[in-house]
């Protein structure tokens, strides 16, 4: 494992911890998109189908368990916890899951490396992860006051994706690998979706202003 990959995973872990911290400690999920969280739960559930049958490393299994556990517990908090769920902006979080899930699934059926159940589900999870942040970005744009933790959560998620791209560049030059078009292109699309957010994030940080995305 190279340094970019490790830094990427740690950033991803940090993003999840920031979100859980907000929800668990402040008992608020204001500004957090349940749609995005449900999509992530689906992403991990379909990607880690082989978690108990294909062992890679303790690190790998542990991280998979953390991402599965955290994504499902965030969804549970937002839907079921009697205090947390009251702070959910249901009226603002209107993005339709199916508009993302269905095209990703159809695309995975057509463009995959091998037409097997596990491989199609794995490819589907890559496509879906690429666009899963969209409901969250739409919600951020509608929310006038983005609190610090929500802003940091999205920033860390975007950072994780950017570090994964560096990781692939590194792997391309150091390992004997195929050109992994599916992983690369979906990863690139995913990272580009954050470009706009990053711009405004750095802008507000530089000017010491509250983060606000233009309508």
């Amino acid at each position: 494992m190279n340094i970019f990959r490790l830094a990427g995973d740690m950033t991803h872990l940090a993003s999840v911890l920031v979100l859980l911290l907000k929800i668990h400690t402040i008992k608020s999920c204001a500004g957090v998109s349940l749609k995005t969280q449900e999509l992530y739960a689906l992403v991990f559930a379909t990607r880690y189908l082989d978690i108990f049958t294909h062992f890679i490393s303790i690190y790998n299994t542990l991280m998979k368990l953390i991402f599965l556990g955290s994504s499902f517990s965030i969804v549970w908090y937002m839907r079921r916890h009697k205090i947390v769920r009251r702070s959910y902006d249901k009226e603002q979080d209107t993005f339709r899951h199916l508009f993302l899930i269905l095209p990703c699934f159809l695309l995975a059926l057509v463009i995959n490396e091998r037409f097997t159940f596990k491989e199609v589900m794995w490819t589907f999870s890559l496509y879906l992860e690429a666009v899963a942040i969209l409901p969250q970005l739409v919600l951020l744009q509608r929310t006038r006051n983005i609190d610090n933790l929500t802003g940091q959560y999205v920033f860390l998620l975007g950072g994780y994706r950017a570090l994964y791209i560096l990781n692939w560049i590194y792997r391309y030059f150091t390992e004997q690998h195929f050109v992994h078009w599916i992983t690369w292109i979906s990863g690139l699309v995913q990272t580009l979706l954050y470009a706009d957010f990053f711009y405004y994030y750095f802008h507000s940080w530089k000017n010491n202003e509250k983060l606000q995305l233009p309508a």
Binding site: R5, D9, H12, H54, I56, S57, N60, M63, K64, F67, E113, R114, E119, W122, Y164, N167, W168, R171, Q176, H177, F178, H180, I182, T183
Partner: peptide
């Protein structure tokens, strides 16, 4: 070689 990409990633 495993044809499927980067299965060791998260």
């Amino acid at each position: 070689t495993e044809p499927s990409a980067f299965k060791d990633e998260l």
